[in-house]
Design a protein around this nucleic acid. Sequence first.
DNA 1: CGCTACATTGAATCGAGTCAACACGCGTGG
DNA 2: CCACGCGTGTTGACTCGATTCAATGTAGCG
Lengths: 236, 236
Amino acid sequence: MKTQFLECEFCQVKGKSLFHFCPSHELEEMSGSKGYNQYKAGQTLFHEGSMPMGLFCVNKGKIKLHKMGSDGKEQIVRLVKPGDFIGYRALLSDTPYSASATAMEESSVCLVPKTTFLGLLRKNDNLADAMMKLICRNLEESEQKLTEMAYKPVRERLAEALVLLKTTYEDKSIPDAPPFSIAISREDLASLVGTAKETVIRILGEFKDDHLVRTEGRKIFVLEPVKLEKISKMYD
Amino acid sequence: MKTQFLECEFCQVKGKSLFHFCPSHELEEMSGSKGYNQYKAGQTLFHEGSMPMGLFCVNKGKIKLHKMGSDGKEQIVRLVKPGDFIGYRALLSDTPYSASATAMEESSVCLVPKTTFLGLLRKNDNLADAMMKLICRNLEESEQKLTEMAYKPVRERLAEALVLLKTTYEDKSIPDAPPFSIAISREDLASLVGTAKETVIRILGEFKDDHLVRTEGRKIFVLEPVKLEKISKMYD
DNA sequence: CGCTACATTGAATCGAGTCAACACGCGTGG
DNA sequence: CCACGCGTGTTGACTCGATTCAATGTAGCG
């Protein structure tokens, strides 16, 4: 939990984050008050039910937002990547966190204090507008996922989850010769799909037989994203 | 599709709607430009995928927001009651409707033109803030529903849906001697729960055996909301 | 009064969860 | 350096909730 001097203005992920709407002087102000810390895989940034202290802005790593369901099974609600914000819903509605945030791999994250962020929002209409649109998109995605959860079989949802992982975490800066791969526990993958880990393993096995994916330890190579996409839309 | 002269300022549902944040002169301005029309049960206000023309404000009736899933099965995403708005997500994010809206019974609805509403939002910070919080709540509810859909069995989800119908549509103005009842098709109830109508009928039958509900044609009397609530939280 | 849409019930089927056993990899400590 | 143990991955067998299909009943409406 150490604080470092990382200037927002020169942050590598500034361009990807909504803070690109902020002029230099706003970023400077933020740099002064923000915190910075790193999390190892499995460490949690905050727990469902606690009150937000500020806005998290992810600098590096992969983070999952997840909720505890009945009988202790978890559902991953959103995947977070560098440049993304975390905790804005709770902040904006002034309510407790409705999900927990946990690092899936070594991650570094800045924390902008609540008052700083809310002040920024009040002053910067572009930022406020972008935040509004962000939440609207979240809502749309969540409702979409809801209907898919209700009616799509696990096979299709898993195919979709693999494509989602690719589109979310693929590094597009490199002209990708190699197929995208991600190291993810079967447990997490199951939580993302909303099923049991054994089921994930079995269907992943089918996908391997069909040469749609390849695995290497916990690493999953997405070989045929287009075909997987097609599988996920089987019934549409 | 006829337009009537209903002044927003004297609207019966003004107090329940977010428009209670608006001063008289704003309401007058809105009254001038808004439309009004009625829908019979089964009629649709708009379809998933089309662009929003304005903000709907429900005056009377019960309306469902629903999405088409795979193989033509629908999922009800939200229930709408008098005083509620419809279509703001699409309006605020400037994207097509992500769900359709259909009247479940005779309903009357006002339509505030897009420009009028957006203008109002820009001028009235309280309204803008309330809208933001509204969407945040929608998001929270949707994510909550997502995890329940993933892990709760149909029995619990049905119990919850019955309680939701009661809390949403019960008229609290009357000191309720009679137990709450609602006329809803088994199909709609199934879409709300995310299951097949036969399953709804069967489990509803069990609830009848346990005297938790009573039915009379398509009307369902919720006799024991507290016990139903308990059933819905069985595993929590 | 009969037609159509909706409600209900039963039987068969299947997707997916659970349980249990086993394999594998990895880090730690002997 | 190897043995052990723990966490995770994998596989198989069994079970069961829930869907589907099919048949029948019922209510409301033109």
